[in-house]
Amino acid sequence: MAAVRRRAADVACLAVALVVAFPLYWMVLSALRPAGEIQAADPRPWTLAPTVDSFRRVLTAQDFGRYFLNSLLVAVVVVALSLVASFLAAVALTRLRFRGRTVLLVMLLVAQMVPVEALTIPLFFLVRFYGDVVPAVGLNQLGSLVVVHLAFSLPFAIWMLRGFTAAVPAELEEAAALDGASRFRFTWQVLFPLVAPGLVAASVVSFVHAWNDFLFAKTFLISGTETRTLPLGLLVFFKPEEQDWGAIMAGATLMTIPVLVFFVAVQRHLVSGLGGSVKG
């Protein structure tokens, strides 16, 4: 009986996996199809004449490598900075008592609620202003994207890490203190490794946000092509009007692959990460 049920669960799992993965498969397949098959709306889920024509159109029309590296650089720096800052903030919010904690938590929630589009104008002038002081974070610089994405990824990351830092037993901290460890040492040498899964989960979300953005990219990167990011470069191909679905799917594939690689690389930690907050 149990075995039958287990078998049924296996089959259902596989069926759902197929359905969920199908749009992605179709995306890659369409990107590899010759134009004629797409025009004919060929429903066969394979192609006999795979071609990289669509990819070539996307890759050669653009300084693709540079845009790719720009996007990667922004995303990686955002992830690194956001991990450190959100971890420290989460520690303060869960393991230390001070006045105004609830207000801060509500503010973090509010910060996620404001529609991003509405903030672009104030942010534009702010970035312009900061650029006069620190040129590296000014308009037309990748630094501007880093600081803005950092600000937008922190509220969620702090909210999420809060669960993990709270779950570490206080006794551990007391024991460390008795051993003569400073709070600083405890935080970095004991707490930080303990909440690693949470850090992975938070970093995934930060990475995706920074990688996908093109609203800020098109607002702050006004002149010059050397700082363009990938979504901005691919925007040219996302034109459903021209019905060039091959190129659209190739662009979508190129945009998805790096995130996919990142996800698969961290997936084992992710599963223990997101729900890890109930352990303890």
């Binding site: 049920r5 287990r6 669960a9 296996d10 089959v11 259902a12 799992c13 596989l14 759902v16 996996a17 197929l18 969920v20 993965a21 749009p23 992605l24 179709w26 995306m27 995706v208 990688w211 996908n212 093109f214 979504p231 996302f238 459903p240 659209i248 799917m249 662009g251 979508a252 594939t253 945009m255 998805t256 995130v259 996919l260 990142f262 996800f263 698969v264 997936q267 992710l270 599963v271």
Partner: peptide
């Protein structure tokens, strides 16, 4: 409830859907 292999496949598919940039996902659908 499922065995490790079907489960891992389901997770990979789900992570794929999650990783797909919003714009790309919208166009694919």
């Amino acid at each position: 409830r499922a065995g490790p292999v079907p489960r891992t496949l389901l997770f990979l598919a789900a992570l794929g859907a999650w990783a797909t940039p919003t714009m790309a996902g919208s166009y694919v659908w």
